[in-house]
Amino acid sequence: MLGWFDENLVSILNGFAIGALLFVLAVGLSIVFGMMDVLNLAHGAFFLVGSYLAVNFVAGDSWGGFLAALGVAALVGLLAGGALSGMTEPLARRPVLDQALLTLGISLVVAEVLSIVYGNDVRSVSPPPGLDTSVDVAGSAYPAYRLMLIGVGLVLALAVWLVVERTSVGALVRASVADREMVSAMGIDNRKVKVAVLGIGSMLATVAGVLAAPVYGARPGLDETILLLALVVVVIGGLGSIRGALIGALVIGQVESLGRALLPDVASFILFGTLALVLIVRPRGLFAGKVAHS
């Protein structure tokens, strides 16, 4: 058992690193849908915007470029989310599907614009200095950057949990997931909440894109792969549930890493099998709220 653990330590750690990234990505998607009923299919495209911003800014070996990329990506994400909120507003009275279709169109446009601007080559991004080395973890060499990702994921999970469970903003979030109309009846302007939620949700996507750039690089098609993983995470965890996003991200992280390492031929089946298994047992995801969104 311990031998097996030793052999696969790198894969397990990779799984945690992917899980951390997926959590950052999925929590935005989950909150936006849980609170605002907007299924943002442009989430993957926003992620890719972040990755390409990292390509732009992380030119030299300095922290400055990496932090600048994070800052710009956060700003771009906020603005994009705000714009998305404005664009979905005329569709608020229409079925949820119409808004999903709108974001699908936006994702097509954004992905094409990115491929026009940056071309179709795979771009790689180097980690910031100090994190581009390998660390010795229980006898195996492991990239320091990925360890930092795991740390960032943990810190962010803790921060999100604290905000949602312990602050008045968090109470608003929980209340909106449960019953948005009631919240609005209590005198809270739904539109302002929507702008904020979509802004923060999209910001998480672009920031995740920057964070992921040193691992995945940036290439056309990455947006779809990432969107799929994030959707699977959110479906497994339950839409609107932050705890669900965390558990789902950790599970899918391991499926993607350990699953691919141990059973490379059937990795796609494992991903789908996990999804199927969870949905058979819990049709609305592991941690679906008490109010079902249909």
Partner: peptide
Amino acid sequence: WLAVRSGGVYFLMLTLAIGELVHQLAQS
């Protein structure tokens, strides 16, 4: 059988996942 158990946006996401699985199978 798995996809039609759910409706609306869940169906959208599940069919997306199933479709992507087939896509990846074709590639692998």
